[in-house]
């Protein structure tokens, strides 16, 4: 039985599951033709499905595509083979982060976002913006300032985070930990590409 090489067992397991789902992709391109950002992607969503079918996971995880997806689900609702393209791209983002792929803007955003949720149980936009800009474009914060100020004036940005009560926060932390533990413990599954089909 073949397993995907070169990834942590958790990632290999997740990729195997994804490969199984995309095995029925018929490369029709409906997803790409429906995607608002496909022209700006290096691989169209359809081409990305092809990478996954071909077992070229590393290319897929390096692609701009997974970070250019707006999660609009246009591809998913139209896919004639009922492949959940949007969700697959989301999972690939998670794998890229967990496997330590080079940090993209989207990755910084995701990490900062979930870090805040884990810390407070709720979103706190000012911190998100600061963390994002510190890593990605320090000067960008200047550009964002006028709108930030306007929103602050209208009371649409709160200066302080709203935290859940301690008990709730503990629950949130446990959720994150339990999910992470399960991700790591995911059992290796046979790679469908190498299985003899009946």
């Amino acid at each position: 039985m073949n397993h995907i090489q070169g990834f942590s067992p958790a990632a290999a397991s997740a990729l195997e599951k994804i490969a199984e789902e995309v095995s029925v992709c018929m490369q029709c391109g409906t997803c790409a033709g429906s995607c608002p950002t496909a022209p700006a992607m290096d691989y169209t969503p359809r081409a990305l499905m092809r990478l996954l079918q071909a077992g070229l996971f590393d290319e897929a995880l390096h692609s701009r595509t997974i970070w250019m997806c707006t999660t609009c689900y246009s591809c998913t609702v139209r896919c004639p083979r009922d492949i959940h393209v949007t969700d697959i791209l989301g999972k690939l983002r998670g794998i890229a982060i967990a496997e330590g792929y080079a940090e993209t803007a989207g990755m910084t955003f995701n990490k900062a976002f979930l870090g805040i949720v884990r810390r407070y149980g709720r979103m706190f936009e000012p911190e998100l913006l600061i963390r994002y800009h510190l890593r990605q474009e320090p000067l960008g914060i200047v550009g964002a300032a006028p709108i930030g100020l306007a929103l602050l004036q209208k009371g649409k940005i709160s200066p302080l985070p709203e935290r859940l009560p301690a008990e709730g926060l503990a629950q949130i932390r446990r959720i994150f930990e339990a999910v992470e533990a399960r991700r790591k413990a995911a059992p290796a599954r046979p790679h469908p590409m190498h299985e003899v089909s009946r």
Partner: peptide, 10 residues
């Protein structure tokens, strides 16, 4: 709107 899948271009 479609993808020319053989070119990989929308």
């Amino acid at each position: 709107r479609a993808e020319d899948t053989l070119l990989g271009k929308v």
